[in-house]
Amino acid sequence: MDRIVKIYTTPTCPYCIMVKQFLKDNNIDFENIDVSSDQLAAEEMMQKSGQMGVPVLDVNGEVIIGFDKEAIIRALGI
């Protein structure tokens, strides 16, 4: 299945590290967007998720806020 997984993170956020590790453990390719160094990406994340907390995961347009393991598993179909 083709899917595009983007994750909006900051380098210092532990939940971001956990999500990234979880994706790696499950062999999921993802694009990591560091919102601390990219103001436009930060705005994009706020628009998409309607909030300002990280991490935010975008799986083919489905937005998941925080390290919500079950929602991530559902969205990825793993």
Binding site: T10, T12, C13, P14, Y15, S37, A42, M52, G53, V54
Partner: peptide, 16 residues
């Protein structure tokens, strides 16, 4: 999470 946060370390950089 719309401006109110309890984790400066996590969310701080978004408020640059």
């Amino acid at each position: 999470n719309k401006g109110v946060t309890y984790c400066a370390t996590c969310d701080g950089p978004i408020f640059k």
